[in-house]
Amino acid sequence: MKESRICEWLGIDSPIIQAPMAGVQDSALAIAVSKAGGLGSLPCAMLSVDDIAHQVSLIKAATAKPYNLNFFCHKTAEYDEQKHQQWRALLKHYFDEFSGQYDESVKAASRMPFSHDIADAIEAFAPPVISFHFGLPDPDLLARIKRWGTKVLSSATTLEEAIWLEENGADGVIAQGVEAGGHRGMFLSNDVSTQVGLFSLLPQIVNRVAIPVVAAGGVCDARSINGALALGAGAVQIGTSYLLCDEAKTSALHRAALKSQKAHHTALTNVFTGRPARGIANRVMKDLGYMNDNVPEFPHASMEMAQLKALAEKHGSDGFSSLWSGQNVSGCKEISAFELTKQFADVC
């Protein structure tokens, strides 16, 4: 069976991959999943080079099991001061509401693309698996990774992206259905109308590519796991279900939202970072429109929103927080990620 082959290929016991979730986890979650026989993942796009090396050291010290490092490989747009001034003017009344001011000295993006500097820091670890969002890195960087013996996965949100990934050197494709929480991995188009559900996307990709396919988006229980495997996936990638686990760093406000009725309304939005991402619908998304043309380019938009989020959260409000979540929260459990991974493995 395909899941048996991909488990052997990745060196894992069960076809369960934990989705990397920047901002709500560190190495602790990845370690728990890997120890349970799945593939634990560490999101690295918001970490410094030194932090990446430190977190990988913690993983290596805790387990000899395989793990995945996840990176973004976007092209960082030029900072546009005029657009940011217009964006800050649009947000000013919110800052006023919370008696705060925007710190205009902040000019640095919070999400950095994969680079040779990062490769220098992780080369000694020769990570077993690296996954990418937003395509693949430049050919010289990709070739460098592969010389380590590292397996390379990347997200595809359309059939065209999956074909492109296979043609450009990916070893495996993560079919990311529109149900998935967090950033869309889309990179060949900015048109959100191209995004489709997992069970429509998955068979299209399986029928056209020869490399392993992982299913992501709305997978949270026995029926969805086995449905994805029946449609040809070799493994499933699960994210939202881990957000309430003991090892997750999910904030108290985010946890409360996930356990409330609000979690049943998620939407794609670009207001937090400049790229489409799925989260629980909240005040700022509704006020500004889920997809707003005034938002600065990714990843610079997060500079204003991060400060506004911090102000609002000090007042107990989640109305300006990026409450990333997939469309299906029914798999969320307040237990160890080790135990949850074992439960997923038992139903495969």
Rank of each mutant, 00 (worst) to 15 (best):
G181N: 12
S131Y: 01
N168H: 15
P128F: 08
R147T: 15
W148F: 07
S115Q: 10
A124W: 01
V152C: 13
A109C: 11
A162I: 00
L141E: 10
T158D: 08
V173W: 03
N168D: 05
P113F: 01
H133I: 08
L165V: 02
R111A: 11
V178G: 08
N168C: 05
G135Y: 01
N168P: 03
A124S: 15
F132K: 05
V129S: 14
A180W: 00
A119D: 06
S155I: 03
A143N: 13
Q176Y: 01
A126T: 15
R184A: 09
L142R: 01
L159H: 03
K151V: 12
L165Y: 05
E123L: 08
A108I: 13
A119C: 12
E179V: 00
A143P: 01
T157E: 12
G149K: 04
G185P: 06
P113W: 01
V129R: 08
M112C: 09
G182L: 03
E161T: 01
P127C: 06
G177Q: 12
H183I: 02
W148N: 10
I130M: 15
A119P: 02
E167Q: 15
I122H: 06
W164H: 14
D120M: 08
P127I: 05
A126C: 13
D117S: 12
K151S: 11
K151N: 04
I130T: 05
S154Y: 00
A124T: 13
T150G: 07
D117K: 09
W148S: 11
L165A: 07
W148D: 10
P128V: 05
P139E: 14
N168K: 06
I145D: 02
D140N: 14
I145G: 04
G149Q: 13
H133S: 13
A126Q: 14
V178Y: 11
F134M: 12
I163F: 03
I174E: 08
I174P: 07
H133D: 11
A121E: 13
F125G: 14
F125E: 09
A156C: 05
S115R: 01
A156F: 00
H183N: 11
F125V: 04
A108D: 14
I118W: 05
G181K: 11
A109V: 04
T150K: 02
A124C: 14
